[in-house]
Amino acid sequence: MKIGVLALQGDFAEHIAMLKRLKVETAEVRLPEHLNGLDGLIIPGGESTTIGKLAVAYNLMDPLKQFGQRHAIWGTCAGAIFLSKDVSRDQPLLGLMDIKVQRNAFGRQVDSFETDLDIPELKQATGTETPYHAVFIRAPIIESVGDNVKVLASVPDGRIVAAQQGHLLATSFHPELTNDTRFHEYFLTLVD
């Protein structure tokens, strides 16, 4: 199994380090041809506007959309924004997931937070009981989801922070900034 990490901008090295801990072969993706031979892709945290502009400039939009038809993709924070079909502003989006996202929904950096989340699917898939400690940084929320999208996690006020649509996964938070590999393990179960 070989998993690519979109390496246009952001914390792609942190995702690669997590995948290496799970003994998975990895590749950095900056150009369309770098998608060849990959079984799945992670779109990291970073600035979604920067990642979108670079994806347009290097003709990655259509290849990424096609990749997502057949293969698993997981977007964390900026990556979740990039996977969505609507962010209520004009910026390049893949539109692969039927989710509407609000950027910086919790406020600015001083409002960024860490908290424990209860994610039943994650516990079940990894056979563990401990809650998932999530790190949110200038995080987006998933405002609404389509009928074919499953909500995986919400914060206590009900706002959605993780969702799955078949082999596509979106999280508002950053599993790559923790020592907990469970979310990466969960993503790997979605890879054919």
Binding site: Q9, G10, E14, G46, C77, Q109, F113, V135, R138, L177
Partner: peptide
């Protein structure tokens, strides 16, 4: 983690 983390989001930028 939050403080360091925002800088990690800026990497490669």
């Amino acid at each position: 983690t939050e403080k360091k983390g925002l800088a990690q989001m800026l990497k490669g930028g």
